[in-house]
Structures are given as structure tokens and as C-alpha cells.
């Protein structure tokens, strides 16, 4: 059973719909006291990373998340929350992965937000991408990105520069794209995560 960390940050209807389509069971988790009930966790998130971090802290789950030893998947802003710091609101975040979340600046000569389907390439072998062809398209919507890191980046995309499309550190995983909106490749990724 997947526990979806419910800290009041945005739309999770599409995520739960995608899990339903894959017959993956889930429940909402609003308190760290319930963490023992679940064998997987998803941290969703849209909008402002700083504001999301504040909500996560107010929910009382922020510190407990760092201690989870089961697979955890952060999606979009949920992934950014796992980094040390975001330029969005100059916010200190969970610091699970020692990388930073940065803004796509104007000198990159790309439109912001990065919105649409972009190819994702493997940087290192990871079971999250089992059965997904290298270079598959995933759907992205974001203005801030996680810096590429040769240790933690497991898949990258290119948008003015190479950035982390997916990372992992121990049992923690993050994807910058929206698997719940990324067609069959995204559904496969959710399925892979549920089977970790």
C-alpha cells in the first residue's frame, strides 16, 4: 500500500486516477504516526517550493519523512522538496539529496515554464525505468530545475542545459516530470515504483 503524503499542496486527483488505472492501492497520509502502515510513499506537489515546504513543516511530517526507510517517490515539487535548497523563495528544504533547485534563467534562452514533452535519458541504471525505452518522452511543467549531479542523477533531460529529470539516493527517488500525465511511459514508471 502506497501512502500519499497529504500536506495540502495542490492537486492529487490526477495522481490517484493514474494509480487507479494501474490498480495500485494507496491511501492519504496526514500524520507521521501512520507511517508504519505503508510500504511505499509518494510526495506530490505543485506550485511554489517554499510554500510547499512551509505546509509540509506545518503538517508535522517533514522530519519524519527523512527517517523513512521504505521507497519514497517525490514528484515535481515533491522531488524539489527532497533537495537542500530552492531558489524559489530562497527556501531551505528537506536536504535528503545534497543538490539544489535552481531557476531556468533568461541567459539560457529558453521559455519558462518548461512546459511539454521532453526526452528523458538514462544516466545510470535504475529500476524505476525498467521496461521504459531510453529517450522516452515525459511531460514536464516547471520553472525551477534540480541541478545535474553525476552521483545522484539517474536520468536527465535537456532544456537549455542538462538537468536532473530523476534522481535517487538510497530509498529516496524523485522525478521532475509528471508520470501521472506522461502517457504509458509514466504509468510504467508508477508501476515500477510500486514494485520496488
Amino acid at each position: 500500500m502506497i501512502g500519499i503524503i497529504n500536506y495540502g499542496a495542490g492537486n492529487i486527483f490526477s495522481l490517484t486516477a493514474a494509480l487507479d488505472r494501474q490498480h495500485i492501492s494507496y491511501e492519504m497520509v496526514a500524520s507521521s504516526a501512520d507511517f508504519d502502515k505503508y510500504d511505499h510513499f509518494i510526495i506530490p506537489g505543485v506550485g511554489h517550493a517554499g510554500a510547499a515546504m512551509q505546509k509540509l513543516e506545518e503538517s508535522g511530517m517533514a522530519d519524519a519523512i527523512k527517517g523513512i526507510d521504505k521507497p519514497v517517490l517525490g514528484i515535481c515539487v515533491g522531488m524539489q522538496l527532497m533537495t537542500e535548497f530552492s531558489e524559489e523563495g530562497n527556501s531551505d528544504l528537506l536536504g535528503i539529496t545534497p543538490v539544489k533547485t535552481l531557476l531556468f534563467t533568461s541567459d539560457l534562452k529558453v521559455k519558462v515554464p518548461h512546459m511539454g514533452w521532453n526526452r528523458v535519458y538514462s544516466q545510470s541504471e535504475n529500476s524505476l525505468f525498467n521496461g521504459i525505452q531510453d529517450g522516452s518522452y515525459f511531460y514536464f511543467v516547471h520553472s525551477y530545475f534540480i541541478e545535474f549531479n553525476s552521483t545522484f542523477t539517474v536520468a536527465f533531460a535537456d532544456y537549455g542545459l542538462k538537468f536532473s529529470a530523476a534522481f535517487s539516493k538510497n530509498n529516496f527517488y524523485g522525478v521532475q516530470f509528471h508520470p501521472e500525465k506522461s502517457g504509458e511511459a509514466g504509468e510504467q514508471l508508477l508501476k515500477n515504483f510500486s514494485e520496488l
Binding site: 486527483f13 490526477s14 486516477a17 493514474a18 487507479d20 488505472r21 511531460y139 511543467v141 509528471h178 501521472e180 500525465k181 506522461s182 502517457g183 504509458e184 509514466g186 504509468e187
Partner: peptide, 11 residues
């Protein structure tokens, strides 16, 4: 919107 989101896997 709900029906589309339930059944369609693109934005």
C-alpha cells in the same frame, strides 16, 4: 474534468 482525468493519461 473528473471523468477525463480518470481516464486520460495526458495533460
Amino acid at each position: 474534468v473528473k471523468s477525463v482525468a480518470r481516464q486520460v493519461n495526458i495533460p
